[in-house]
Design a protein around this nucleic acid. Structure first.
Lengths: 355, 355
DNA sequence: CTGAAAGCGCTAACAC
DNA sequence: GTGTTAGCGCTTTCAG
């Protein structure tokens, strides 16, 4: 790999002249500049960022940590971020946590060692203390999830309101026994989504039955599948179901198809997220849709702005905590229907009940 | 950010002692080691990779370039690669090209500047000369696609055989007019897939009608949609259809659903790739499935092995070009049916033909 | 307009 | 066992 010195030697110049010529310094004659640039090109010279950074050049790498890039939700996020950063001449360093705090720590440690300029994190439920310490020394933003020990800057979706909306939709259709299948309440998002569901039930005067709340691991298709089996085995099954994560939804959809459950007549379903193909699942999935792409793009832009602000005036806290919340939209398709269409019995359930 | 010198000063030691203690050098007393490690931890010291690399330490970053990470195919690849590399203490630098050679060049340039140890690339149809030059100086592997100017090492799928298989399936079901909707033949994969289709037709004694080959941009959902509309508007429409890319398939599926085409009775369809949800599209999509995850994992492992080999004995070409090809499997579902079931007319098409 | 030299943080060869 | 020193490739004073 050719260095600036190699270029200099080949032209009988000094390193400094070469460096200046390449950075288009005003003091270098136009002619020399051309010679240097040409020689550099011919030798395949590419500046050594390690050396630049050692000299204190601002890093052009931004770390991005997500739980699982093969999850469409996060893939979309990574795509949007990668685009914004590339447009602004930044490289993206990608890390997956699999929702494991040890992996998370390893990734963040890698970021710090690689001297990233900043980071965008979808944190695990409870990051390791060292992860927190390391991120403290790094401009960063939380995406989607929210952990109080990390940066106060967060871009997320309105989890509680969204699930309230989904639940209300079912209530308005006459459903009284509505189940929730989602992720762990240890996660800020898991908790908020369940709250949205539960609060909406309460405010409609309905009881929140523990047996109808299926809270599992952070993001698990298997949990979604298993939850459906458990729910359908109840003596008095639910007539409506809302889900609280993309993966849970996936599992629920698979299980319902496998069991041959009649949707929406036997069960009305509202999904979470709007992945490719959900519109053609069964009767079409009624689901919560989120502006993930825009959310991620905005988040990236905001971080970039923070970085340049830190550069300009060494003021890290340029105006307090920033938190942005995007609302979800309910996309109506065929998987939800009025309960009255089927059962006219005003009491809960359609069977005489075994208890 | 604390440096080794800071740690040294705080303990009244020299930088080298600190460096040695942290790298667990045999010559340092156990007691000193403990003191140093503790102090380093307390001060939040993280080694500066830029400085290490300047000293010639092998890089622990691997560049990965894909056309579009939001495409499930590539998301799976990125996931698999990220896992292998993380397991082996490597960081992943991610770049998207959007199938544009300028973006590709920018990304690769970034990799070189960031001193990546190696790269895995899904190249654009014709990378810029400079991209080629830069990659020449970098251990790298081509994934899926194949450009002759780049590394001879390639991990891919058997494009030609797979599409042959898909086409044969339709022929065996009695179809005689079979359309192909895929990506540009400028891409090695696009060309091979079309070849697989065309050769199979020929070997079955069927003509390859230009009007039935819809070749579009590298990876475009819109092209898939438009192609269906054009194909169905032909005076003598096809009764079978095979697709040659994930995105094309997506477009085809959307369009068929939108037009309300009766699959498989009016048209039998074989897709490319097996994305989440394709099993529940219409009657279930008969499609080509590829071991993408394993492919990517193997590819990553192979590159890692190359890297350590280069480290050990400065032999870059340790045993000629390596090329691995994984076969696809045809997953039979409901979107294909025997043509005989519907039309008994031995002639092409069912209409009297307008020409 | 160009050159010489210092130093970023780290490691490794060489003292002691 | 620990300290001293040089140098990786680059930028950036300071000289000329």
């Amino acid at each position: 790999m050719a260095t600036a010195k190699d270029v200099a030697d080949s032209l009988g110049l000094s390193v400094s002249t070469v460096g200046r010529a390449l950075s288009d310094d005003a003091r270098i004659s136009a002619e020399t500049k051309v010679r240097v640039v040409r020689a550099a090109e011919a030798m395949g010279y590419v500046v050594n960022r390690a050396a630049q950074m050692l000299r204190g050049a601002p890093s052009d790498i931004i770390g991005v940590v997500v739980p699982d890039i093969s999850n469409g939700f996060y893939a979309t996020i990574a795509h949007a971020l990668s685009r914004v950063f590339a447009r602004n001449q930044f490289q993206v360093m990608l890390g997956e946590t699999a929702d494991d705090r040890t992996s998370e720590l390893r990734q963040v440690r890698g970021f710090v060692a690689a001297q990233v300029a900043g980071a965008i994190v979808v944190p695990t439920a409870q990051p390791a203390p060292e992860t927190v310490r390391l991120l403290r020394g790094l401009p960063h933003v939380q995406l989607l999830r929210n952990v109080s020990t990390l940066s106060p800057h967060r871009f997320g979706i309105d989890d509680e309101q969204s699930l309230g909306q989904a639940t209300r939709h079912l209530i308005q259709l006459g459903h009284r026994r509505i189940a929730f299948v989602g992720g762990t309440p240890d996660l800020s998002t898991g908790a908020a989504r369940w709250r949205g569901y539960a609060e909406m039930l309460r405010s409609a005067g309905l009881a929140v039955e523990p047996a109808l709340s299926e809270l599992g691991p952070p993001s698990s298709v298997a949990h979604g599948r298993a939850a459906v089996d458990r729910l359908m085995a109840l003596p008095d099954p639910a007539t409506g179901l809302v889900t609280g994560s993309v993966q849970a939804t996936r599992g629920v959809l698979e299980a319902l198809l496998a069991r041959g459950t009649d949707v929406p007549d036997e069960l009305s379903v509202v999904g979470f997220g709007d992945e490719v193909g959900w519109s053609w699942w069964g009767p079409g999935l009624t689901t919560l849709s989120f502006p993930v792409q825009q959310l991620a793009t905005t988040c990236g832009l905001w971080l970039l702005d923070q970085l340049s602000a830190v550069d300009a005036a060494c003021t890290t806290a340029a105006g307090g905590a920033y938190s942005s919340t995007s609302p979800g939209t309910l996309v109506l398709r065929g998987s939800t229907a009025a309960r009255g269409d089927r059962v006219t019995d005003p009491q809960h359930g359609s069977r005489p009940a075994a208890d």
